[in-house]
Design a protein around this nucleic acid. Structure first.
Lengths: 188, 188
DNA sequence: GGGTCGATGACAGTCACTGACATCGAGAGT
DNA sequence: ACTCTCGATGTCAGTGACTGTCATCGACCC
């Protein structure tokens, strides 16, 4: 492994989230993050492409999980139902990480650069979901619109979960958001 | 006015778009932009907050135009119809600037940082539209969903306009995208 | 002709990020 | 045990985005 302690990558991510939360993103230097992790600034940039990316390391896995669940949905499932299966899979990952999700969300919403990065991650997720739906035979622009709707549903449910009382279940809040979307689409 | 020639801000924007198109965004330094505009690097940052913002100077005016058109829609107009009026107003602005829009769009899509910035501008637009709809009495989450849908419609129409033949009309392509959205929402 | 004020220039400084090269540590092979 | 290899880390110099500060210029006012 590395030259000293193991899990350098994880230590850097923890140090970064901690410092961003304590002092704010802009007031934290990469050198400080590396120091708290017992590493050097140069090593930080070997693990993360830039100062923002350290907060989004898990987004690739999450996207793959979401996409796979949609791809593995029953062939005859409607687009919105396939997306619901993906949403369920993603919710399961977050279930026991609420404190982490809360801290991370607070840091991101407090800084414009980090919000930018989150938006492009969500756009990437949306594009991947649209691709997957197209492979299931969904035509454009229905595939893209359904994918964006699915992402919006997750955003709404996730934010309510972050703000909600301890005992609320993310999966349930996301299901409720999905129900609201169905109502809006069916209504007016 | 300024120390030398007038319109320093516009000259900087022109120089930036030109250099970004010729060499690419990353290969262009702010010092080069300033030099082409006959100014210094420091003055660039007095006019634009950062190297990306020079491509998004007009987005604030565009957002205000869009929002005002929606706010001024007849009281009894449905959310989607109010948004259609806003879309129409925005299209009019672009009508005679197709070469500029094309060049700008090519530069932005070629660079991840610039795509990030565009996404946050669109998110800001969506939030402002949602606020406006709420003032018109539209409840959540219908207001946010309608606003995001309106922005998606513009994106689709705009991209087809950029890629289309010279004689296609932006307003018409946006109307077509809106029609497709209505069909998808009403369908499945 | 002098004074005021906003816009610009000049300059030093911080920090994100990169390339090049040296070095360490662990495991493989002997 | 000894050496070799190789990936991960350290070190250092450098570029460029961005900022704070102060001097200076040019237009307008009186």
């Amino acid at each position: 492994m590395g030259r000293w302690e193991p899990n350098a990558r994880e230590r850097l991510a923890e140090a970064a989230l901690g410092l961003y939360g304590e002092r704010g993103y802009e007031q934290t230097t990469v050198a400080e993050i590396a120091k708290r992790a017992g590493l050097t600034e140069r090593t930080f940039f070997r693990h993360y492409a830039d100062k923002r990316e350290v907060l989004f390391a898990g987004s690739r896995d999450l996207q793959e999980l979401f996409v796979r669940a949609v791809a593995d949905a029953p062939e005859n499932a409607a687009p919105i139902d396939a997306l619901a299966l993906g949403l369920h899979a993603v919710c399961a990952v977050f279930a026991d990480r609420r404190p982490f999700a809360r801290a991370r969300h607070a840091v991101i919403t407090a800084n414009a650069e980090l919000r930018e990065r989150e938006l492009i991650k969500l756009a990437s997720l949306s594009a991947a979901l649209a691709d997957t739906l197209r492979l299931r035979g969904v035509a454009e622009p229905a595939a893209s619109l359904a994918a964006e709707a699915g992402v919006s549903v997750f955003k709404v449910g996730f934010e309510r979960w972050i703000a909600a009382a301890e005992d609320r279940d993310l999966a349930q809040l996301v299901r409720e958001a999905l129900t609201e979307l169905r109502a809006v689409a069916a209504g007016s």
